[in-house]
Simulated scan of single mutants.
Amino acid sequence: MKIIVNESLPTNEECAGSLKNVLDALYVINGKWKLAVILCLVQSSKRFNELQNEITGISSKVLAKELKDLELNDFITRKVYPTSPVSIIYEATEYSKTLKNVIGELSAWGEQHREKIKQSMRKQS
């Protein structure tokens, strides 16, 4: 972790603004599954069953809800093809790709956290 010396503390207004921004972001991408769905769709477009198979543990009901929420917030598009039976393909929008750095940072932090937990468990043994 990088320690910054001699940097002034943020003002109350800056803290309030940052908190509001973080809460707004969390409101849109909250929950266990939204980032996983976005990550899968950034890699390639997929059908519902492909997503469900790729995201271990998600129920069809929850996946359907997450897809609707993500579509409403312009993170994904849903394309319906008039075949028999109807084909529906989900894909990431350009807007969802703006989360690339956020997902990268979360991934890096998750890896560090996993290592920290492993070290803690070794010390307890």
Rank of each mutant, 00 (worst) to 15 (best):
Y81C: 05
E54N: 11
W33Y: 15
C40A: 15
L26F: 13
I55K: 04
V28W: 03
G31S: 01
S84M: 05
I58N: 06
E111L: 13
E94C: 00
I117L: 10
S125A: 12
Y27N: 15
E94S: 07
S8G: 12
G17M: 11
E14N: 06
K97E: 07
K65P: 00
I117R: 06
E115V: 05
Q52P: 00
M121E: 11
D74R: 08
L99W: 03
F48D: 02
L26T: 10
A92N: 08
L35T: 04
V5L: 14
V37L: 04
G17E: 14
E111Y: 14
L41D: 01
G110V: 02
I29V: 15
H113N: 08
T98N: 08
M1T: 13
E71C: 11
V5F: 10
L51I: 02
T77K: 15
K100H: 06
S84D: 10
S87W: 00
K2G: 05
Q112L: 14
D24L: 06
D24V: 07
D74P: 01
L35M: 12
V22F: 13
K123Y: 07
V37D: 00
K61G: 09
A64C: 01
S18L: 11
F75R: 03
L19Y: 10
S84C: 03
P85M: 05
V62Q: 10
S120V: 02
I4N: 04
Y27F: 09
N73T: 11
R114A: 11
S8E: 15
E71Y: 09
E66N: 10
S18W: 00
T83M: 07
L35R: 03
K116S: 12
L39F: 04
K97C: 05
Y90K: 01
G17L: 11
A25D: 00
I89F: 03
Q119H: 09
S8D: 12
K79A: 10
S107H: 12
Q52K: 15
S96W: 03
K68I: 11
C40T: 07
A108Q: 13
L39M: 09
K20T: 11
E94W: 02
N101W: 05
V28S: 07
T93K: 06
T83H: 05
E94A: 09
E94L: 08
W109R: 13
W33V: 04
R122E: 13
E7L: 10
K118W: 09
L39E: 14
M121C: 08
L72C: 01
T11Q: 06
R122N: 09
V37A: 03
N21E: 12
G110F: 00
M1A: 14
E115R: 09
P82L: 11
L99P: 01
K32Y: 12
I38W: 00
N73L: 05
